[in-house]
C-alpha cells in the first residue's frame, strides 16, 4: 500500500529550497493536493509574489505569472477578467499581501473578484532577513525593531483575515495554522472552501496561513511551531470570519 506520494500538481524532481522548519512547504503541498483532488491543475493560473513565496513556480506544476511586489491581486484580476474559465489564485506573504499590496488585496475583495488569495503570515519579512512588517507582534524583536515592536512608534499588527472578511465582495475568509496535524487538516478544509467559492462564482476566497520563519526568528523548527501556538494564535485567532456558502 502506498502511504505517501508527491501530488501530481508538484513539479517532478523539484529541489526543496525553503529553510528547515519553514511552513511554506506544507502550505504548497496542501495547495498541490487540492489541485489534484479538485481536478484543477490544467486550468490553474497562479499570480506569484515577491518574497520567499516567489519560488512557488519552482514547486507547483501550473502556469504562473510573477507579479511585482504587492501586485499579485492586480495581476490575478487581469488573468481572471481575460480568462474567466480558469482557476486563478495568488500566493503571497503578509508583507506582499497586507503591506505593499494592501490596496490591491482589499480592492480585489471589494470588487468581488472570483479569485482565491492565500497569504502566508510569518510576522516578518523573511527573504530580506527578518525585518519588522505589517503583522509583526507587539514586543517582537526584528532587525528593524531591535528593541521589540512597541505601539507608540510602530503601531499595531494587522489582522488580515478579519479585514478581508469586512469587504462585502468576500465570499470566504479564514485564518488557519500549520503547527499541529489537526490545524493542518483544518487548513486544507479552509483552502478547499476558498477555492470552491471561486469555482462557484460566489466571489473572493481568502485564507491567511500562520507560518513559521525559524531562521529569522532564530529558533529551532520545534520552537518556531511553539511560538505559533503560544504567541501568534492568541493575537491572530484561528477561525472562519466570513462564509457566504453558509449564509444561504
Amino acid at each position: 500500500m502506498q502511504v505517501f506520494k508527491i501530488p501530481e500538481s508538484m513539479k517532478k524532481g523539484f529541489k526543496y529550497t525553503f529553510c528547515p522548519g519553514c511552513d511554506h512547504g506544507i502550505a504548497i503541498r496542501l495547495i498541490a493536493e487540492l489541485l489534484d483532488e479538485m481536478g484543477l491543475q490544467e486550468k490553474t493560473i497562479c499570480a506569484t509574489s515577491i518574497g520567499c513565496s516567489v519560488f512557488l513556480y519552482d514547486f507547483l506544476n501550473v502556469d504562473c505569472i510573477e507579479a511585482p511586489h504587492g501586485r499579485a491581486m492586480a495581476e490575478a484580476t487581469g488573468v481572471k477578467r481575460a480568462r474567466p474559465d480558469k482557476f486563478v489564485f495568488t500566493y503571497q506573504g503578509d508583507g506582499d499581501f497586507a503591506s505593499i499590496g494592501f490596496a490591491e488585496s482589499s480592492h480585489a475583495a471589494l470588487r468581488a473578484e472570483n479569485l482565491t488569495g492565500i497569504c502566508i503570515n510569518n510576522t516578518t519579512y523573511g527573504m530580506t532577513g527578518g525585518q519588522h512588517g505589517p503583522t509583526t507582534l507587539i514586543g517582537q524583536k526584528t532587525t528593524t525593531s531591535p528593541m521589540g515592536r512597541f505601539k507608540e512608534t510602530y503601531g499595531y499588527p494587522v489582522r488580515i483575515a478579519e479585514h478581508i472578511a469586512l469587504c462585502e465582495g468576500t465570499a470566504f475568509s479564514a485564518r488557519v495554522a500549520l503547527d499541529t496535524v489537526p490545524h493542518i487538516n483544518q487548513a486544507k478544509k479552509a483552502l478547499k472552501k476558498a477555492i470552491q467559492v471561486q469555482l462557484d462564482g460566489l466571489g473572493y476566497g481568502f485564507v491567511e496561513i500562520l507560518s513559521t520563519c525559524p531562521t529569522n526568528w532564530k529558533m529551532t523548527p520545534e520552537e518556531a511551531h511553539e511560538r505559533v501556538k503560544n504567541e501568534m494564535i492568541p493575537v491572530f485567532p484561528l477561525g472562519i470570519f466570513k462564509d457566504k456558502t453558509e449564509d444561504n
Binding site: A67, P68, A74, R81, A82, E104
Partner: peptide
Amino acid sequence: NMVIGAVST
C-alpha cells in the same frame, strides 16, 4: 499590473 495579468494569458 492587471494588463500584465491579462496579456500573460
